[in-house]
Design a protein around this nucleic acid. Structure first.
Length: 948
RNA sequence: GGGCGAGUGGCGGAACUGGUAUACGCGCAGGACUCAAAAUCCUGUGUUCGCAAGAGCAUGAGAGUUCGAUUCUCUCCUCGCCCACCA
């Protein structure tokens, strides 16, 4: 039955406000629930229909939790500092504070149309001095703890936005905001030492079972922990210098055949030989002009230049050349590497291009799973070859089929003392198969260690093998000796058909990989070879032992390295929190007194970027000039501002105690409300806001401002709503759907239900106006049920109601809103069919629907004579007994195929079911003339006759 | 290149722990109501064969485990997201 949504929505939204039921209650005797949305950035464009999806979800959960007796905190606020507002303001010639205020008003108006339960008394706005006073306060504490420091290192500079940026603000080599190519520019900046928290940020992810694994994985990768060693290399004829490299593979130190410095490395100019100087200088300056992307492209051919200097490998005193190449990054590790081309892809490519030696020091290990080494048998170590002969005419490969053993394998044989491996392979192939005319192609990579039990010799063997690849030139064969002939015969097999099950060769996967991929580095762990005193050691062990050896000898030490960089925290822009620091000639950088906070952003006429790399604040002399809080002498204020992310690092704490003037948050209140029970927002914040906020939170925990180590217990990602044409909603495509229009035409309830119903919550999904119409129809059907209210109802309705109460509650908790809605639709269909529902049942149904469609459900309840607002009432409970039915429909299968269904009493036992089932016509037909071998009976589900 | 995730009707999607595949919604077709249309209601709707009863085939492709697989295992293909010369 149609209803006037505009009238109803206005009425109930007013009622909610008047009654004040959504004001947060804090009675300590009650359980709390803190539902949080990632607060929006109030842009000039307003909301489109995709934005509220997450807000609707937290609102549904909040309403249910209220009805379930929780004290619920469900706030909203504005993340309003930052570049877009400032750029928008410049473009439209309005002050950012004015523009921000206007945008917030629009956003708030739009949100209010949807009937959310927000407690607006707790609204926060990151640009208000009362709020950013505490952002500045937190920063001051970091400064005092040595966590905020001044740095002059080159940073990402966006020429478009005229400001420095953090790594997290980049989209490849471009500014994430304006798309300009980012330059590396050395400049003074403030940096937060987030790397001090890297280990905790990483480890504590394990304490967050209710975060999506994908987000945790992204954070792990972003933090990028590597364990290894720093190794010091002395430089030949430069006693005053040494090169320190970081490596995760100290076990391969014997295989280091050259060193590489990044072009920016400070030693480049010091050690370059005169005859190489011009080449090196040219290379270094060319590298400087490359973009980050150009340098980061790992498919690009390697480039580099020899410095003319040599380093001394501490482990064997070999002299190895030092090169400069841009595949080594200045910003990671020490900006220098030891190159082990045999066991690193990049070093391998470089060594091949510049003809540098490649030395294998790790042998991968393959243990023959079909003939594994046997305990207590003698072990013999041998050097062997595998002769791989391919017939180019057929593509088949030469194998041996053993006569006495169930084996088929390649031609394998020992290498005699002093014998060349290729010669050994030719010899073995001739002896065992008779083929003599073979064209040598190549050795398939390095040595592999195979371990197996040689049954015919009753001994364990360790074979260090090479595979030698030949092409068959012609079929000419010599006579094979009797002994060999009695053992096996040659056969030609299709290489593709060979696998670990039908072929006797533990090394098979490696040979084929090398055959197909050509020459490459081998990065597997294995057993050390060519490594003197580390030989035969598994390399995971050699890694530790080598590190200890280096420490002992003073050549290096264990090192843990992170990809996470310290956070560049200053921006040379106007619209951000001023940093509460003062530069005094006498006292240096001095923090402002806490009682003088907030340091307000001065109101100015011009806030365009200065273009000099300095913040626009630097031009406001009145503001810049101040006195030193320590010596009272003249001093200048810090003119950099904080980045957009600053305010969002802790806003969720402020909601708990938004008006507190003496503390960031009251510790007792924080203890009650924290941590956030449910946090909903886009996955795009995985490596920025969500890492930054965790970092700040841990710091605040360390200084005793908060009670818990992690801020957000449960995280749910919201899937994007695409436009009906499948593209992202954007002004550019003209495909934006405005929630105001939808609400006006179809009502807030229809929009809310539709967004919850359209797809699984975290999955992207295209908007469909038809789909929306469908949910509106559903609500009208619900409204029509009023006509069907009666004294009695069919038992099916009662059962369906209890099922619905259970499923909707469970699904809301699990964020499976789409199936919750479909369950409610099914319920309404059931009631419509049997035409009757009691007032009591109907009210219960309205209560579970209320979180999704709060206006219409309250209206109907009111019509039914209910006086209380649904949200203040109790969430209905279900009777588990009512979920069971007396009768159950069983599937009857014959050989797994459905041949009929029967309805039997719930508790029916196998024999009864069998009799009934076999009497079923179609089942009978399918069983006719067949022998029943087995009957599978699953109570309440099915019976399956297995017949022959 | 690496990591994560996903492939089910015409479309969005459902299927709990291996147990009747396609719930719910959209769309479409037919019917009722109407002078007519919209709205609403009813019926049908994976595909092939069949008048029907029913049967065969269907969850990206191919294999495997099982009485039984959308679900578990392996191989491959396609798409999406994230990271990407991080030593």
């Amino acid at each position: 039955m149609p209803y006037n949504h505009q009238e109803i929505e206005k009425k109930w939204q007013e009622k909610w406000v008047e009654s004040g039921i959504f004001k947060t209650k804090e009675s300590p005797d009650k359980k709390k629930f803190y539902a949080l949305d990632m607060f929006p950035y109030p842009s000039g464009a307003g909301l489109h229909v995709g934005h509220p999806k997450g807000y609707i979800a937290t609102d549904v959960v909040s309403r249910m939790k209220m009805m379930q007796g929780f004290n619920v905190l469900h706030p909203m606020g504005w993340d309003a500092f930052g570049l877009p507002a400032e750029n928008y303001a410049i473009k439209n010639k309005v002050h950012p504070s004015v523009a921000t205020e206007e945008n917030i008003a629009v956003f708030k108006k739009q949100l209010s149309l949807l009937g959310f339960t927000y407690d607006w008394e707790r609204e926060v706005n990151t640009t208000e001095p009362k709020y950013y006073k505490w952002t500045q306060w937190a920063f001051l504490q970091m400064f005092k703890s040595g966590l905020a420091f001044e740095s002059f290192e080159p940073i990402n500079w966006c020429p478009g936005c005229q400001t420095g940026l953090a790594n997290e603000d980049l989209d490849g080599d471009k500014c994430e905001r304006c798309g300009s190519l980012v330059e590396q520019k050395p400049m003074r900046q403030w940096v937060l030492k987030i790397t001090d928290y890297a280990e905790r940020l990483l480890n504590d992810l394990d304490k967050l079972p209710d975060w999506p694994d994908s987000i945790k994985q992204m954070q792990r990768e972003w933090i990028g922990k590597s364990e290894g060693a720093e190794v010091n290399f002395r430089i030949f004829e430069f006693p005053n210098f040494q090169v320190t490299v970081f490596t995760t593979r100290p076990d391969t130190l014997f295989g280091a055949t050259y060193l590489v410095l990044s072009p920016e490395h400070s030693l480049v100019s010091e050690i370059t030989a005169p005859e190489q100087q011009s080449a090196v200088e040219a290379y270094v300056s060319a590298a400087k002009n490359k973009t980050v992307i150009e340098r980061g492209d790992d498919t690009r051919e390697k480039t580099g230049v020899f410095t003319g200097a040599y380093a001394i490998n501490p482990v064997n005193n070999e002299q190895i050349p030092i090169w400069v190449a841009d595949y080594v990054l200045a910003g990671y590790g020490t900006g220098a590497i030891m190159a082990v081309p045999a066991h690193d892809d990049r070093d391998f490519a470089f060594a091949q291009k510049f003809n540098l030696p490649i030395k294998q020091v790790v042998a991968p290990v393959r243990i023959d799973s079909k003939n594994p080494p046997v305990a207590d048998k003698p072990t013999v170590t041998r050097k062997t070859i595998h002769g791989l002969v391919i017939d180019p005419k057929t593509g088949k490969i030469l194998c041996l089929k053993w006569k006495q053993q169930p084996w088929t394998g390649f031609v394998v044989g020992g290498v005699d003392e002093g014998e060349d491996i290729v010669a050994a392979a030719r010899r073995e192939i001739k002896e065992e198969t008779g083929y003599v005319n073979l064209k040598f192609i190549r050795v398939l990579g390095g040595v592999v260690r195979g371990e197996y039990f040689a049954a015919h010799k009753d001994e364990n063997r360790i074979a260090y093998s090479n595979a030698i690849l030949f092409e068959l030139e012609n079929d000419e064969r010599e006579i094979v000796g009797d002994e060999e002939f009695s053992k096996h015969e040659p056969i030609w097999l299709e290489p593709k058909t060979l696998n670990q099950d039908n072929f006797t060769c533990a090394e098979l996967d490696l040979w084929f990989k090398r055959l197909n991929n050509g020459e490459a580095a081998d990065c597997e762990y294995g057993v050390a070879i060519n490594s003197e005193f580390f030989n035969d050691l598994p390399t995971w062990k050699a890694k530790d032992d080598m590190t200890s050896w280096l420490e002992e000898k003073g050549f290096g030490h264990k090192k843990i390295q992170y990809k996470l960089r310290d956070w560049v925290f200053s921006r040379q822009r106007y619209w951000g929190e001023p940093m509460p620091l003062v530069h005094c000639e006498k006292c240096g950088v001095v923090p402002m007194k806490e009682e003088d906070l907030p340091l307000e952003l001065p109101q100015v006429e011009h806030y365009e970027p200065s273009g000099t790399g300095e913040s626009p604040l630097a031009t406001i002399t009145d503001w810049v000039n101040t006195t030193c809080p320590v010596c009272d002498g003249s001093a200048k204020r810090e003119t950099n501002t904080m980045p957009q992310w600053a305010g969002s690092c802790w806003y969720y704490l402020r909601y708990i105690d938004s008006k507190n003037e003496t503390a960031l948050v009251d510790l007792a209140k924080e203890k009650y409300w924290s941590p956030v029970d449910l946090y909903v927002g886009g996955a795009e914040h995985a490596t920025r806001h969500l890492i930054y906020a965790r970092f700040w939170h841990k710091f605040l925990f360390d200084i005793g401002v908060v009670n818990y180590e992690e801020p957000f217990t449960r995280l749910q990602n919201v899937g994007l709503i695409m436009a009906e044409d499948g593209r992202k909603m954007s002004k550019r495509w003209g495909n934006v759907i405005n929630p105001d229009d939808v609400v006006k035409e179809y009502g807030a309830d229809a929009l809310r239900v539709y967004e919850m119903f359209m797809a699984p919550f975290n999955q992207p999904c295209a908007w469909s106006t038809n789909g929306l119409v469908g949910t509106r129809r559903f609500l009208e059907k619900v409204n029509g049920l009023v006509q069907l209210v009666s004294e009695k109802e069919n038992e099916n309705v009662t059962r369906a109601l209890h099922q619905t109460i259970k499923k909707v509650g469970d699904d809301i908790n699990d964020f499976r809103f789409n199936t919750a809605v479909s369950q409610m639709m099914t319920f309404v269909n059931t009631v419509s069919e049997v035409k009757g529902i009691t007032r009591d049942s109907f009210l219960k149904f309205l209560r579970v629907l209320c979180p999704f469609a709060p206006h219409i459900t309250n209206e109907i309840a009111n019509e039914l004579g209910e006086v209380e607002i649904l949200e203040t009432g109790a969430w209905p409970t279900y009777d588990p007994e009512m979920l069971k039915s007396d009768e159950v429909t069983l599937a009857i299968q014959v050989n797994g195929k459905l041949r009929g269904t029967i309805t039997v009493p719930n508790e029916a036992v196998e024999d009864e079911v069998k009799t009934t089932a076999m009497a079923e016509e179609n089942v009978k037909k399918n069983l006719e003339g067949k022998e029943i071998i087995k009957v599978v009976f699953v109570k309440g589900k099915l019976m399956n006759f297995v017949v022959r």
